[in-house]
């Protein structure tokens, strides 16, 4: 039984996350089998594309309960990009694009997913700084404070807005400071792509690996 499962959300960056995780000596398997996910010691939940599409995929594959089970059990869980947005209560995205009244997420963290306001180039594409809100093992060895944090690679049009400040793990400036990393116990979410963020991203993934190892023993 493998300890780390990357959820097969059929997204384009699946292979990149797998390769980056392997590169930092993690030993992940890619799976969409609820049994394998429930038995995992830790989960990476990637996603790109549209919120509504991803949300319906998760429910069609019957992954909702095993994902929530993993989170509730306190197993290390890392949502990436849309995978982080799906942890939230709801998103504005579908209201705009498909006419569906509400787009519901997993509701593991209370808050909304909102579209960047008009006037900024959208999508927000490229390297931007992530300033950790407080010292945490996930950002160990990465910049914070005075120099505004380390650079990570972003590409997205929507951002998360947690209801509670205690869920904010990192912020990024794009016209205004938005939440680019979230936390709830061992549940983490990052809006950027650690698998495409060079040395800083690999460090974050390796830090996540360390968190898994520390919980195991």
């Amino acid at each position: 039984m493998s300890s780390l499962v990357i959820i097969d959300s059929e997204c384009a960056n699946l292979s990149s996350i797998y390769k980056a995780a392997r590169f930092v000596n993690l030993d992940p398997v890619i799976s969409d089998n609820p049994k394998i996910i429930s038995a995992a010691e830790a989960v990476i939940f990637p996603g790109v594309g549209s919120f509504a599409h991803a949300a319906s995929l998760i429910s069609r594959k019957k992954l909702t309960s095993s994902l929530l089970e993993t989170i509730t059990a306190g197993k290390p869980f890392l949502g990436i990009c849309l995978g982080m947005q799906l942890l939230f209560s709801r998103s504005e995205e579908t209201i705009l694009s498909s006419g569906i009244e509400t787009a519901e997420g997993l509701k593991a963290i209370s808050g909304e997913v909102k579209r960047f306001p008009e006037g900024l180039p959208i999508p927000h594409v490229g390297w931007n700084k992530v300033d950790p809100a407080f010292g945490h093992p996930l950002f160990k060895g990465l910049d914070s404070g005075v120099n505004g944090g380390s650079y990570f690679y972003f590409t997205h049009s929507y951002y998360v807005q947690p209801e509670k400040n205690e869920n904010i793990l990192g912020r990024t400036e794009y016209g205004f400071p938005f939440t680019s990393a979230v936390i709830k116990k061992n549940l983490f979410g990052v809006q950027f792509h650690p698998e495409k963020s060079g040395p800083a991203g690999l460090r974050l993934l390796s830090n996540f690996g360390k968190i898994i190892a520390d919980i195991k023993y």
Binding site: S16, K19, A20, F23, Y153, T155, S197, G198, G201, L202
Partner: peptide, 8 residues
Amino acid sequence: TAEVVFIP
């Protein structure tokens, strides 16, 4: 390339 280069 994707095995060793972790940028877009």
